[in-house]
Design a binder for these strands. Structure first.
Length: 464
RNA sequence: GGAGGGGUGUCGGAGUGGCUACGAGCCCGGCUGCAGACCGGGUACACGUGGGUUCGAAUCCCACCCCCUCCUCCA
């Protein structure tokens, strides 16, 4: 039985170095998910896909992974948009959570164990806030509760900032009740939007406290991996650290992982810039596996510049993998011998992912194994080949989160296939090829091997 | 202005002192009635710029240039 090694390391934004994890043991992961006021875009997908591969690979290494990814369902933008549409903020959030889950499924993101929502953890947030006030880390003013940055000497350690520099850069008009411009809100006393009663006035939680609360509720004081987009380093994660560590007195996370931005036209893809591509549009246009290959084609810490050219190359890689997957599905190897090729490539795949989640190199190893499969298939040697070839292939395929369409083709497709076979046997190749083209446009490819014809549901991205 | 991360062949991307990772692309050929996958050959023998250290540097040192992100909600 081939498997991945029980250890991996990732680089940690906080220390700047690597942190290693060794199975078997529990692995707790928390990833900052979406704020649900609109459809998710492929920038979000890049981050989620990165942690999806981390999740799957850690699982394959023998860790008992506990993965939590939240939804932020209360925030100014949700309230604003709901007001514009004349519906309740929570209703709007509910709607976009449903849409997001649909997109996640389309992307074949493996569901985290828990997907908590901010509004379901207000009590936990209030408990933390109360304790922070008692211990002098936070103070109450008429407009709410603020965290006092000066009570946490390590403030700035994640984003490598110094508090005195923050003051100079503070562009927001400060609340006059703030003692220090760098202090941030834990609780906001307000009159509109979803409101909760609290000892400090009716209102709602500040930005960052939700993650501290949800991490603490679901995963404990110190988690193994905390992740998110690189744009969350400051202030979001910095503030989480300040709150949580003041509250528990322990480190919040052993490793902080941040995914580089997806840029488009040399600018970050962001709703506020209006340059987004929705996940569902991208999946529809390019297919889930091609899109996944593309968004994972750059190392996760590097920025990725969106390009059709890059998508096209990702598709070329996927074609090779896809074809091998079908070859293996149609002719599963049954040999008992060892496969040195499969072992070597699996090892390379394993090492790549173990070394700070080098997915591009891992994909490269899978492509080479796919080519090996293709060679065996073309030589009609696949059935007699080592089972390890299939074992290694499906392991790699699964860890990278690829998925082939399930189930047999619909009847009308099968009818066309047999029609084409008839034409072909009569030597009417022109008409047969026209049918092949028509099937292709329906998403089905025919592969003739000897006297057999295979029907494959394939991705057919559009690059115009 | 401050902080962080980068600049490697057409693209993506390894590589932290010597042995041209790797993958895709592109061109030609083979296999195929034609295709896909597969196979053979070819193309690119690159390292932001200028100095320095060294027998030897993409890798070390110095200076400079450029790009991206963050410093405001943001995956």
């Amino acid at each position: 039985m081939l498997r991945l090694s029980p250890r991996f390391s990732v680089s940690d934004t906080l220390s700047g170095g690597r942190v290693e994890f060794v199975a078997p043991r529990e692995l707790t992961m928390y990833v900052c998910g979406l704020t649900v006021y609109d459809f998710a875009h492929i920038g979000h997908a890049r981050t989620l896909l990165t942690f999806d591969v981390l999740y799957r690979s850690a699982d394959a290494r023998g860790f008992a992974v506990k993965y939590v990814q939240n939804f932020t369902d209360v925030d100014d933008k949700i309230i604003d948009r709901a007001a514009r549409e004349g519906i309740e903020p929570l209703e709007l959030a509910e709607r976009f959570i449903a849409e997001a889950l649909r997109d996640f499924d389309a992307l074949n993101l493996r569901r985290p164990a828990v997907m908590p929502r901010a509004t379901q953890h207000v009590g936990a947030m209030q408990r933390i806030i109360s304790r922070l006030i008692e211990s002098g880390h936070a103070y109450v003013v008429p407009s709410g509760v603020y965290f006092s940055v000066s009570t946490f000497p390590e403030y700035g350690k994640l984003s490598k900032r110094r508090v005195d520099q923050l003051l100079a850069g503070a562009r927001v008009e400060p609340d006059p009740h703030k003692r220090d411009p760098a202090d941030f809100a834990l609780w906001k006393v307000q009159g509109s939007g979803p409101l909760w009663d609290s000892p400090w006035g009716r209102g709602r939680p500040g930005w960052h406290i939700e993650c501290s609360a949800m991490i603490n509720e679901h995963l404990g004081d110190t988690i193994d991996i905390h992740g998110g987009g690189a744009d969350l380093i400051f202030p979001h994660h910095e503030n989480e650290i300040a709150q949580s560590e003041s509250y528990t007195g322990k480190p919040l996370a052993r490793a902080w992982m941040h995914v580089g931005m997806l840029n488009i036209g040399s600018e970050k893809m962001a709703k506020s810039l209006g340059n987004i591509i929705r996940i569902r549009d991208a999946v529809e246009r390019w297919g889930p596996n091609t899109l996944r290959t593309y968004l994972l084609s750059a190392h996760y810490r590097s920025p990725l510049e969106f390009s059709i050219e890059g998508l096209r190359k990702a598709y070329e890689n996927w074609r090779i993998i896809e074809s091998a997957a079908y070859d293996l599905r149609e002719s599963p190897p049954s040999g008992d011998s060892e496969s040195p090729e499969a072992r070597a490539l699996l090892r390379e795949f394993d090492d790549s992912l173990a070394s700070d989640l080098d997915v591009p190199s891992a994909i490269s190893a899978l492509v080479r194994l796919s080519r090996h499969v293709g060679r065996l298939a073309s030589e009609r040697r696949l059935e007699g080949a080592s089972r390890e070839v299939a074992e290694a292939f499906w392991l790699m395929f699964g860890v990278l989160g690829y998925r082939l369409p399930e189930g047999p083709p619909p009847d009308d497709v099968l009818r066309l296939v047999s029609e084409r076979a008839r034409l072909r046997s009569e030597g009417r190749f022109g008409e047969a090829d026209a049918l092949r083209a028509r099937l292709r446009s329906m998403g089905y490819e025919l592969v003739d091997v000897g006297d057999r014809t295979y029907v494959r549901a394939v991705e057919r991205p559009r690059f115009d």
